[in-house]
């Protein structure tokens, strides 16, 4: 009975903390898997796991809308596109991966170190203001009003950017069509045998 009483004392905040650790413990191995897995398609699927865990983190932060959008757009849409692109170019991903050349290794190291430093400094800095109030219960409405009201210009800019990207994608996909390999039954020979067929038919 004492145990139960102790359990009852665990408040909501600590449950959230525990959930954070669980989700982080899911997300980090998945993220490592994305980088380290040799079968590139499998790392695509692991990416879905990462996005799923991150959307869980959003849920803990009471940001339901963002969490759902995360699942719907990132976890499903983008990853599927990645997977399809990979599949269409290279069905079974058992290629020999060449180790990176010396200087690109160095570049990679420098870039990742700088990135790490930036993220670390950003997290350690004190510029993380915490609002005293709880998130709005219907945060979808708040987001909608913000997008169409205060932030309508950035929203429009983002839309134009997406449109440009879409048009670029279409232009890329609409590559010069080459002459189809399979030609129809050619007109000339068709006509010749047509006459033959006529003759055959009339003979009968």
């Amino acid at each position: 009975m004492e145990n139960l009483a102790n359990l009852a004392e665990i408040n909501a905040a600590s449950i959230e903390t525990w959930m954070f650790y669980v989700l982080a413990a899911l997300a980090i191995p998945f993220a490592y898997g994305v980088i380290l897995d040799k079968a590139i398609i499998r790392s695509g699927f692991l990416l879905i796991g990462v996005f799923g865990a991150i959307s869980g983190l959003f849920l803990i932060l009471q940001a339901q809308f963002i969490a759902m959008a995360q699942i719907m757009i990132y976890a499903v849409g983008i990853t599927l596109v990645v997977v399809i692109a990979l599949m269409l170019t290279n069905p079974r991903m058992d290629l020999d991966l060449k180790p990176a050349a010396g200087n690109s290794k160095l570049t990679g190291f420098v870039v990742s170190f700088v990135l790490f430093a930036v993220i670390y400094l950003a997290i350690r800095s004190d510029a993380w203001p915490i609002k005293g109030e709880l998130p709005a219960a219907s945060n979808v409405a708040v987001i909608g009003q913000a997008i169409t009201g205060q932030y309508s210009l950035p929203f429009e800019f983002a839309s134009v950017l997406l449109l440009a990207a879409l048009m670029g994608a279409i232009m890329l996909a609409k590559n010069e069509p080459v002459e189809p390999e399979i030609l129809e039954y050619s007109e000339a020979s068709g006509a010749a045998s047509d006459a033959e067929a006529e003759a055959l038919t009339t003979a009968r």
Partner: peptide, 16 residues
């Protein structure tokens, strides 16, 4: 025969 089905210059493998 299906003339509308064009092939593109994108390099793809055939599957048997």
């Amino acid at each position: 025969m299906a003339t509308e089905l064009k092939t593109h210059s994108l390099k793809t493998d055939e599957m048997i």
